[in-house]
Design a protein around this nucleic acid. Structure first.
Length: 465
DNA sequence: ATACATGATTTTGA
DNA sequence: TCAAAATCATGTAT
C-alpha cells in the first residue's frame, strides 16, 4: 500500500494531463532531471513487478489499472509506440490480395476442388469430359477420375477447415491475450488489429501451401487419367488378331467403314482384357488402321510373314465356310478420285472377273494371286490403278446398268459398282493395292468407306469359285 | 539399359 | 475434312 501511494504520488509528479501531446524527442529535454529520475523509477518499478509475488503483483496491477491517470498514460505510450514505428514494421495495410493465392483459387475453382459442393464437383467432371473429347467410352476412366478427384476434394476441404479453425483459434487467443495485456501495458486496439493481420498473413502461407499441394495432386491426377499417351496400353492379343485379320483380309482396301469399325471395336472389346476395364473404341480402331496402313506400307517385307499368316488363317476359315455364302452386303469401298462406290454382290463376280481377267479367286489361291498382282503391279504404269480403267467402268455402266446404281444422285458421276466378294480377302490389289507413288493405290483410297462390315467375317469372301 | 513395338497425337497436304 | 506422314510417349523384350 505504501508503494502504491508512492507510485500514485510519483505519477502525479509527472504532471501528465492526458491531453497535452508529448513530442517524443522533446519529452526528456523539456523535463527537469528530477522528473526524469521519477519516470525512471516508475519504469523500474513496473519492470520489477514480475519479480514480486503473484499477489503483490496483482495488487499493484490492480492499483495501476485503477489509477485515474492510467488511460492518459497508456494513450501517450501507445502514441509513442506508434511513432517509434516499431509496431509498424510488419504492417503494410490494405495490401492487395496475393496474386499467387488468387491463381491457385481460380485453378481449384476451375478444377471443381473448391467452390460449391453441388454434385460432388460436377464442374470438374464436365471439364474432364470435355477435355478428353468426351464420350461414354471413357466413362470408366471418368468415374475413376471422379472418385479420385472427390477424394482430393474431401482432403482439401477437411484440411482447409482444420486450417481455418486453427487460424481462428490462434487469432482469438492472441486477441484475448493482447486485450488482457492491454490492461497492464500499452496495447492499442489498432495494434491488436495489426497483430491479427500479421497472424493471418502467416497462416495464409500455410493456406497457399495447402492449395498448392492440392493443385499438384489434381494435375497429377489429370495427367494420369486424362493424358491418353500416359494411359496407353497395348491391345490384347485377341484384339490385335481381330484387327489384323480384318486388315489382311481387306488388304486391297484396308479402310473399314464406320460400321465396320464399330463392329471391330465391339468384337475387340469382347476379347480384350476386361479386367483392366479397357474397351477399344472406334477412334482407336481408326488409329490402329491408320498406323497399320502406314507401317505396312513403309515396310511390306517386314509384314510379309504376318500377312502370310493371316492369309493362311483366312484361307482356312474360308475353306470352312466355303459354301455358306453370305448374302449380306459386304465390304465395298468408295474410290476417292472417281467417287466410285463399289458394293459387293456375288452376281457381279463374273463381270469383274472378266474385267480383271480373274477367273478363280479363293483363299487358297492367295499365293497365286500375290504373284499375279505383282505381275499386274509391274505393268506399264508401275502401279495398279483403277483410274486407268475409267472407260471400263463406263462400259460396265452400259453393259449392265441394272446393278450399277447411282450412289450419289447429286454428284452425278458417282457410280455404285457392285464388287465381287471374291476379290476381297485376297491381295489382288497388292501387295497390295499400293501404287507406285506410295499411295495405297489412289483409285482404292476411299474418302469414306461406306461398306458395312460383312456378317461374321470377311473371310468367306474367297470362296467365289 | 537399350532397342524396338505400338497406340496416340500432331502436322501436313489434297 | 480425311488420310498420310511425322512424331511422341509408353510398353515390352532382350
Amino acid at each position: 500500500m505504501e508503494e502504491h501511494a508512492h507510485l500514485m504520488q510519483t505519477l502525479g509528479g509527472v504532471t501528465l494531463n492526458g491531453l497535452t501531446p508529448i513530442s517524443l524527442p522533446g519529452i526528456h529535454e523539456s523535463m527537469e532531471p528530477a522528473n526524469k529520475q521519477e519516470i525512471g523509477d516508475i519504469l523500474h518499478q513496473i519492470m520489477a513487478i514480475t519479480d514480486q509475488s503473484l499477489d503483490e503483483a496483482q495488487a499493484k496491477k490492480h492499483g495501476l489499472n485503477c489509477h485515474r491517470m492510467k488511460p492518459a498514460l497508456f494513450s501517450v505510450l501507445c502514441e509513442i509506440k506508434e511513432k517509434t514505428g516499431l509496431s509498424l514494421r510488419n504492417s503494410q495495410d490494405e495490401e492487395p490480395p496475393d496474386p499467387q493465392l488468387m491463381r491457385l483459387d481460380n485453378m481449384l475453382l476451375a478444377e471443381g476442388v473448391s467452390g460449391p459442393e453441388k454434385g460432388g464437383g460436377a464442374s470438374a467432371i464436365t471439364i474432364a469430359t470435355t477435355a478428353v473429347g468426351g464420350g461414354a467410352e471413357n466413362s470408366i476412366e471418368h468415374s475413376d477420375y471422379k472418385a479420385k478427384l472427390s477424394q482430393i476434394r474431401n482432403i482439401y476441404h477437411s484440411e482447409l477447415e482444420k486450417y481455418q479453425q486453427a487460424c481462428e483459434e490462434f487469432t482469438s487467443h492472441v486477441m484475448n491475450l493482447l486485450r488482457e495485456q492491454s490492461r497492464s501495458r500499452p496495447v492499442s486496439p489498432r495494434e491488436i488489429e495489426r497483430m491479427v493481420k500479421i497472424i493471418q498473413r502467416k497462416f495464409s502461407s500455410i493456406q497457399i501451401q495447402l492449395k498448392q499441394s492440392t493443385c499438384e495432386a489434381v494435375m497429377i491426377l489429370r495427367s494420369r487419367f486424362l493424358d491418353a499417351r500416359r494411359k496407353r496400353r497395348n491391345f490384347s492379343k485377341q484384339a490385335t488378331e481381330i484387327l489384323n485379320e480384318y486388315f489382311y483380309s481387306h488388304l486391297s482396301n484396308p479402310y473399314p467403314s464406320e460400321e465396320a469399325k464399330e463392329e471391330l471395336a465391339r468384337k475387340c472389346s469382347i476379347t480384350v482384357s476386361q479386367a483392366k476395364g479397357s474397351t477399344i473404341t472406334v477412334s482407336q480402331v481408326s488409329n490402329w488402321f491408320g498406323n497399320k496402313r502406314i507401317r505396312y506400307k513403309k515396310n511390306i517385307g517386314k509384314f510379309q510373314e504376318e500377312a502370310n499368316l493371316y492369309a493362311a488363317k483366312t484361307a482356312v476359315t474360308a475353306a470352312q465356310g466355303q459354301h455358306s455364302h453370305d448374302s449380306s452386303p459386304s465390304a465395298g469401298f468408295q474410290m476417292k478420285d472417281e467417287d466410285f462406290q463399289l458394293d459387293v454382290s456375288e452376281d457381279k463376280n463374273n463381270l469383274l472377273n472378266n474385267i480383271f481377267n480373274v477367273d478363280c479367286v479363293c483363299g487358297l489361291c492367295w499365293w497365286n494371286l500375290t504373284i499375279r498382282s505383282l505381275f499386274v503391279s509391274a505393268g506399264s504404269s508401275g502401279s495398279y490403278s483403277l483410274q486407268s480403267s475409267g472407260e471400263i467402268f463406263t462400259n460396265v455402266t452400259d453393259l449392265n446398268s441394272s446393278f450399277l446404281s447411282t450412289q450419289d444422285p447429286g454428284a452425278g458421276q458417282t457410280l455404285s459398282l457392285n464388287y465381287s466378294d471374291g476379290l476381297r480377302g485376297n491381295p489382288l490389289y497388292g501387295p497390295h493395292g499400293l501404287n507406285g507413288n506410295g499411295g495405297w493405290s489412289d483409285a482404292l483410297t476411299p474418302s469414306s468407306v461406306t461398306s458395312p462390315i460383312e456378317g461374321t467375317s470377311s473371310i468367306h469372301s474367297d470362296t467365289s469359285n
